[in-house]
Amino acid sequence: MTYAIEAHGLAKRFGDKMAVGGVDLTVPAGSIFGFLGQNGAGKTTTLRMLLGILTPDAGYVTVLGDDYPLSVAHRIGYLPEERGLYPSMTARETIAFMGALRGMPLKAGRERAEELLSAHGLGDEIHSKIRTFSKGMAQKVQLLGSFVHSPDLIVLDEPFSGLDPVNQAALESIIIGERARGATILFSTHIMSHAERLCDGLVLIAGGRTRFSGSVAQARAVLPAQVVMRTVDPLENAIGHLPATFARDANGLYRFPLPDEGLDATLKRLVAANVGISELTTERPTLHDAFVAMVGDPEADDINLRSSEQETYR
């Protein structure tokens, strides 16, 4: 398997504060990869180190096979967390300029900019200045500028931040379209639903360290499935036959983690006790649940349950 990004032990300190204390990241080529973490977890600092904007204090990084990311900058597209555009430039010139920074001829950049703007609903705004745009429109222009030069790797820092649901959906389809073209997409977010829908693989960091690395399914598997049960009557004698970790919610549903040995033994005990069961389901935890569970204890040991290097995410 080839990797678009390989980073090991990345660390960065700002004065007395350790911003990133050891992040490992391997992003398979051609995948959509999520980089998850709370606010302040060190996502942006890590992405900046991956792109060569910041130099790590420790660790190493290889991007598109090169140890010096800036030397392959023309093959990378980047949408920073802090959006920045020149207000007096037109949409077309902005995108062409961003392409030119990545080595694309200006003329070709302009032509491509017109194509992209037209294809993404901004065909009437090609010559409009950025200062006249809404935040969502400006963000879309910046996103289009990040892949105007058809890069092999696109790094998006919190791309969904500040977008309405319609634009979030549009952005998701753009990301999927770029993956279909063959690009690798790495994006950071703390909104789990996007990662759950889009990502082939993900890394979760907390406190500047990697907490999890693997697929979405593997992340969800970090937590056991939940058994949800409704009894015919809220019989007190049922309680003694449930796992000790059960909880009863306001709707009268009993919830408990699926036991390691399975549900058979528990069900047999309940039937033997004449507990009437009217409803029984198992629910797999969401990525959000897994995220909260993993990030909830920043001091916990790394949860690298499975080696992501052995996984194929597509």
């Binding site: 792109l51 900058a73 980047y78 920073p80 920045g84 555009l85 020149y86 961003m98 920074l101």
Partner: peptide
């Protein structure tokens, strides 16, 4: 102030 600098820094030396 307009934050473009990060795009520049990520693109060229």
């Amino acid at each position: 102030g307009n934050k473009v600098i990060e795009i520049l820094v990520a693109s060229v030396p």
